[in-house]
Amino acid sequence: MGENILIVASNSKSFTTVALISALEAGEVQARAVSATKEDFATIDKLPPICIVNGGGFDNDGAMAQLIRLRDMCLDQRTKVMFVATDIDEMDTFNRTFAQELVIEKLIRPIVPAEVAELTKAHLDKLEQMKDRKSVLVVDDSGMVLRSMMTLLEKEYNVSLANSATTALAAISKHSPDLVLLDYEMPVISGAKLLEMIRAEESMRDLPVFFLTSKGDPETVKSVLGLKPEGYLLKTTPSNEILKMIRQFFEK
């Protein structure tokens, strides 16, 4: 299975599917189509980086079950999904079934296969580039901090966000970040508590963590360092400095 694209359709020989495959192959992207309702999809267990779901005929239970199965596999294998829906209703169904973070493209028919192929290729290239990037998780209860950190870091790193201890732990297991930026002051479960939890967990023990704190007084600083974070960043530092420090961290 050396292909980069899997097209899942209710009928793998449908015109759109076949046209898509040939358009992709013209652009030197290998693609394969499977039919969602048949055995050939049921036996697939390894997905390529991008899956195109070609709609039409997904209104029966069997197909829906397969779609859900596809969604779970995509979540597990971090496969990205492109929708080609027949109409808005179907698009809505797709949206409801799939987690938004997996979806990179939403199209409603009619489509121009060559254009879609180009789009797919662009996404493939971007995914390739992003694979090698380090991933950073930012945890802060303030949406604005999350936004500003995302904007600051997303050009160089794959950034994921969380705004509480629960969402943070979920994000860590989902995204396996290379570095976590953790806010010290958070409601319910504080940053310090969260770090304790992280250090207690076998799989996360060695996760590098930087604290984000706007406190400058020595007491907090000391207590922060006691938990063996990689360091701490004052939120008041200018953002280029923050970026530089993160870059330096990764260069080590």
Partner: peptide, 11 residues
Amino acid sequence: QEAIEAFDMHA
């Protein structure tokens, strides 16, 4: 709703 649950800022 899905996007915010997934913390997908851009979407």
